[in-house]
Amino acid sequence: MNNKYHDITIALAGVAQSAILVPQLANTGGCNNTLYQLSIKSIFNTSPLSTEDVYDGIKNIETGLTVLIQLLNSGQKEQVDIMRYLFGTLSITSKLLKNNDALSKIDQRLKRISGLYPDMNAQTIETHEDELSYSLAGIYSDIVSPISAKIKVMGKIEFLQNSLVQAKVRASLLGCVRSAILWYQVGGGRLQLLFKRKSICNEAQALLQEIAKII
């Protein structure tokens, strides 16, 4: 496709899809396992062949595309937190991309983790989900979070005080950052979210129609 919003929309949908996990975890202590595992897998997919390849095909970001359309078209109260996490991670990522030392450290940590799980497929992630969550949370806390103002996570105190929930929230935010890096790489910019919302929504709708044909 020559449509310049094709890759931009896919990457932004990836950010949105990871962002929805944060309020799920913070308010219920759990989240959609399939989407969470897809988010983890995307973090380790650092040498993709295409934008779609980060998510193993556009069918895996169907939820993200749907949520993205909702975010850009409505100001509903339940969408506010998701939008805040999306914008927050876009902001952190813009600073992260200017910090080569931090990027190098993230790469090193991911390679070290990957070395423990040579075949980073869906089954491996499902089997070792908790250990991977803590490892990825460590990357977020140690390297990403100090770069900018911390993203305030809103939720129920009993869940926010749970160490595994905390780890999964940070791992989900790292998933947002991974997709945000991709978004900037394919030409994404903050002004598009102000002035090109319709173009992004139209492309998201077209991608959902494409997914419907695949299914």
Rank of each mutant, 00 (worst) to 15 (best):
residue 165 V to R: 04
residue 64 G to S: 06
residue 183 W to D: 02
residue 57 G to D: 02
residue 43 I to M: 13
residue 117 Y to N: 10
residue 133 S to R: 08
residue 151 I to G: 07
residue 100 N to M: 11
residue 27 N to P: 00
residue 111 K to M: 11
residue 29 G to C: 09
residue 204 A to I: 06
residue 91 S to I: 09
residue 82 I to K: 00
residue 180 A to R: 02
residue 76 Q to C: 02
residue 20 I to A: 05
residue 80 V to Q: 13
residue 49 L to W: 04
residue 177 V to C: 12
residue 21 L to T: 04
residue 211 I to S: 02
residue 130 D to T: 13
residue 62 E to G: 12
residue 93 T to I: 07
residue 39 S to P: 05
residue 49 L to V: 11
residue 127 T to Q: 14
residue 153 V to M: 01
residue 25 L to A: 07
residue 130 D to G: 00
residue 197 R to T: 09
residue 32 N to Y: 07
residue 70 Q to M: 11
residue 35 L to S: 10
residue 31 C to R: 08
residue 212 A to E: 14
residue 21 L to M: 07
residue 201 C to K: 12
residue 2 N to G: 13
residue 147 I to L: 15
residue 158 E to H: 11
residue 100 N to F: 10
residue 85 Y to H: 04
residue 111 K to F: 04
residue 193 L to M: 12
residue 210 E to Q: 14
residue 195 F to C: 09
residue 196 K to E: 14
residue 56 D to A: 13
residue 167 A to W: 05
residue 35 L to P: 00
residue 78 E to W: 08
residue 164 L to T: 08
residue 20 I to T: 11
residue 122 A to Q: 14
residue 8 I to L: 06
residue 6 H to M: 06
residue 43 I to R: 04
residue 26 A to E: 03
residue 7 D to E: 11
residue 104 S to I: 02
residue 137 A to Q: 08
residue 14 G to A: 07
